[in-house]
Design a protein around this nucleic acid. Sequence first.
DNA 1: GTGAAAGCGCTAACAC
DNA 2: GTGTTAGCGCTTTCAC
Lengths: 341, 341
Amino acid sequence: MSDGKPERGAVRNITDLARLAGVSPGTVSRALAGKSLVNTKTREKIESLAREHGFRPNQMASGLRRQKTDVIGVVIPLGHDTRQQISDSFFMTLLGYLADELTREGYDLMLRRVVPEEDADWLDRFIRSGMIDGVIVIGQSDQFDRIEEVADGYRPLVVWGNRQEGQHHCVVGTDNRLGGRIATERLVAAGARRIAFLGDTGPMEFAARFAGAQDVAARMGLPPILPLPTHLSPDRASEEIAQHLAAHAGAIDGIFAATDTLASLCLTELRGHGISVPDEVRLVGFDDLPIARQTVPPLTTVRQDIAAGARGLVDLLLRRLAGETTESMVLPPELVIRATA
Amino acid sequence: MSDGKPERGAVRNITDLARLAGVSPGTVSRALAGKSLVNTKTREKIESLAREHGFRPNQMASGLRRQKTDVIGVVIPLGHDTRQQISDSFFMTLLGYLADELTREGYDLMLRRVVPEEDADWLDRFIRSGMIDGVIVIGQSDQFDRIEEVADGYRPLVVWGNRQEGQHHCVVGTDNRLGGRIATERLVAAGARRIAFLGDTGPMEFAARFAGAQDVAARMGLPPILPLPTHLSPDRASEEIAQHLAAHAGAIDGIFAATDTLASLCLTELRGHGISVPDEVRLVGFDDLPIARQTVPPLTTVRQDIAAGARGLVDLLLRRLAGETTESMVLPPELVIRATA
DNA sequence: GTGAAAGCGCTAACAC
DNA sequence: GTGTTAGCGCTTTCAC
């Protein structure tokens, strides 16, 4: 090391640095943490030494001592449709915004994807791992009850999903039932009367959208909404949509798709079957993902404000972390009229 | 606590549990870690006690002691197009697969999105945080040199990106230059001669795709490839594409788009300008994202095997973690012919 | 303003 | 097979 380059890596901990600076470990800790009183010259010396050696305090040790990790866990339960649901566009977009928001607030993000069927204890395990200060669950999937169980005993938990009457856990999400109504009203306004709901009605969010559609059908005296269940993975969904279309050709003149992804696939299949949109069949999606603008014709859909959702999740979580009790946050859906209905 | 429910949370650490079980902390540690010799009855007793109290060893403490966290850092540098590039479909899909692979191998995933312009020290800071055993960088962005600097001194680092002659860091990625050739050859085969490259040529991967296109143009004696730079965010890109189209209408008969996302936007704009695809202009994308099948007409593109990429990244990282020296991994691109060229 | 010392919760080497 | 003990690297009283 005679070339004058700093010998990086030689400083393994705060004690090494303290020795170099000729002070005690405690002082180094104080200086690097940026708080408490430390003599300006001492601080500068320690900081320059740290920079020179590329030293940074070990966050695990710090976390252990402070009982705070500055890491937030984000978990995606893969309940209904096990594989690769994590690549679902909506959740991934939400995740992107969450990463932005958490970073801004000085937190790191620990991502975990779990299959509840294989690991019943997924939430508790994560919470008690000692690695995270709080948890954000993306999507209730079919795990509503398990989340409820845990929520009473663990404060810093916020969930993206659907709000249920009287639930205990703090949730952020769109008013799915209202969204379902809005979508269906639009279909009716565009001339549809025999309306189908495309998608699995199992997950809470989807069930609520379906219920909203049923509300409108009942109120307007339309025939009951026809459920056309599908999986979420594009491959299987396309096939299932084709089958539904073959089975119900001519019997429906409006489709409310549970997501834009499904709506887009549906549009492709409709074209394949020579069914014109919106003349013969009207179509409304849900989410307003970027793809909704690019379908042919562009997709009429119900917009969820993902950025606002992410902000809400992080904001509520931080407040709960600070000891506040928080209400759930319900975001208003917004109809975006394009060309399919 | 008279109702017989286990008093959860009362057991805060391994010592508490040891007291309850009438053994020493060391034995509890051994029993819960599942290794070393522990009497079967003792082990069962400890395990049932742990279950009853919902106790789980603190991973931070364990990590500190073992000098191993079982967490892999995944970092997405946002270099070229700062905001929201994290929601780029390709990266997010890769991230999903990475989460799957890492989970399978027993690792947790710590996600960090960084803006190198704001934080020159992003990689070093992450590595030295003490929170992760290794790092996967998703996308070299414009940070090739910084990654190179760090790579020599830090083994467990693997990068998704483009391979350069003689580079030091271990990279997994598609042969982008070859992909560019394949795409361009297809355009030519479909009748194009005046070819444009749509997208920023700054990022390494894109530069290589562009270079591949230039290879073919040179070899075949075509006019030079016309670069049509864009941003990656859909809003700005659409606008820029429209401007390019207006400026070069009639002067180009083939477009190689840097990504499927850009190709899809381009298709929309082409339609808007009344330019027929593939008759007047041929179009080839890159990635083979799900959207490529759903454009109208369906997109001819160059497929990257994202799942294989994720597997490669994790595999190489684990081997480097085990002390092996590994070569980079170059994946073959594959032409997927649909209807735009 | 700084040093000394205790300890966060865990694991592993060493006894027995 | 189990107990004891010494830290992992850091923060934070409590002295001075």
